[in-house]
Simulated scan of single mutants.
Amino acid sequence: MDDDFWVGWPERWTGTDCDVRTAVGAIPREVKDGFRYDEVPWQRFRHFYGPGEEIPGLLATLASGDAEAADRALQQLWTNLHHQGGTIAVGALAVPFLLRIAAAGRPELRAQTLRLIAEIGRCQHMGDGSRESLLQVAEEPLMIEGSTMCPVDWTIQAARQAVTDDLHLLLPLLSDPDPEVRSVSAYVLAAATGELSHASSALQTRLAKEDDAAVRVSLILAIAQLAREHQDGHAPKWAHDLWSDPGRPPEVRIGAGLAWLCLATDPAPDELRALLTDPGSRQYDDLLQPVPWLTWVDHNGAGLRSCIDEMLTANIPETVLDDPWGGEPSS
């Protein structure tokens, strides 16, 4: 390989055929709406196990009327585009089509399709439930994906822009009959890079009428993530008002407590610490495990507890740490 190839990387690649942000941004609306896969430059990028040209066939099968084949195609797309928690450039090219398939395709596959979209546009965060990372989306600028040498954050930026361009497809899904779809729709919407007042307003409106506990927490975390990413200085007070209000449902207070810890830099107030470590909050471990942010912290059902433990004990000297749950560890 020419030694000069890497000179000026990655800045010299900006806007070139190697920049997935440019490739995704150049896909016309009519190509997306018409599923005209042959007009998309899949060949420029590989997936984790092979050439990008394989992705359109899987997308077409996912959108087909064959339920079993569609399910297999979705599982293969997960394997190809989200290996070990990571994302890859060709996945961003798939996002506009995945959004359309999720909106109009098989209802039983909608939630998992939306979840894949969200993970394509988010940094690898499995196991990290810290105040700094739970709502983080961007990746380190120089982190690269080995098979394409494309900065991972370029993929995330491209996927997030694709989500923003198609908010009109996502917003109606906040009212889907399936709570899991509503929850994951909030997860995807939290990645928006524009139309922020529109997205946040839709999330707030849904929160005011939502009656499912896990969806409520997903909506709160989505609102907080948008606020954190776009430096909304009013958000910490909003979250504080929610968690400190004893008239709110317990899951709303717990979700808002997590949101506040991610939005603020102050130590956790004693009142918040008491709320989150109250033994009664253990009953919400299973109930809130489906919240997408918590699922990725711990797939084995301890997402909420892991977040609370990490957020409340970070930067405290080990010699003064007490059991934040006030009791014996669970088996």
Rank of each mutant, 00 (worst) to 15 (best):
M1Q: 12
D2Q: 13
D3T: 15
F5N: 09
F5H: 13
V7T: 12
V7W: 02
V7M: 06
W9P: 01
W13D: 14
W13G: 00
D17C: 05
V20T: 14
R29I: 04
G34L: 03
G34S: 06
R36L: 15
D38C: 03
E39Q: 15
W42R: 10
W42H: 05
Q43D: 15
F45W: 15
P51T: 05
I55R: 12
P56F: 07
L58R: 15
A60R: 15
T61H: 05
T61N: 05
D66M: 01
A70K: 05
A70E: 10
A73G: 12
Q76V: 12
L77V: 14
L77R: 13
Q84N: 13
G85A: 01
L93D: 09
V95R: 08
P96Q: 10
F97N: 07
R100T: 02
E108T: 14
Q112I: 02
R115P: 00
R115Q: 14
I117T: 13
I120L: 11
M126F: 03
G129S: 01
S133G: 05
L135M: 08
Q136E: 15
V137L: 13
A138I: 02
E139G: 01
E140Q: 00
M143Q: 10
I144K: 04
G146C: 05
G146R: 10
G146K: 05
P151R: 01
V152T: 12
V152M: 04
Q157F: 04
A159I: 03
R160F: 03
Q161P: 04
Q161K: 11
T164H: 07
H168G: 11
L169M: 07
L170Q: 09
L174W: 09
S175M: 02
D178P: 10
D178Q: 13
V181Q: 08
R182L: 09
S185N: 09
L189H: 06
A191Q: 13
T193V: 11
G194I: 05
G194P: 04
E195P: 10
A202K: 12
A202C: 10
L203S: 10
L207H: 08
E210C: 08
E210N: 08
D211L: 07
D212L: 02
A213Q: 13
V215Y: 06
V217I: 11
L219G: 11
L219S: 10
I220R: 06
E229Q: 15
Q231I: 02
Q231S: 07
D232C: 08
A239N: 07
L242V: 05
D245T: 04
D245L: 02
P246Q: 06
P249F: 07
I254V: 15
A259V: 06
A264P: 01
T265L: 00
D266H: 03
A268I: 07
E271N: 03
E271A: 15
L275N: 02
T277E: 01
S281C: 11
S281P: 00
Y284K: 02
Y284A: 03
D286K: 07
L287M: 15
L288G: 14
Q289C: 06
Q289W: 06
W293A: 04
D298M: 01
L304Q: 12
S306T: 13
I308F: 01
L312C: 01
N315C: 06
I316E: 11
T319A: 09
D322S: 09
P324W: 00
E328N: 04
S331M: 07
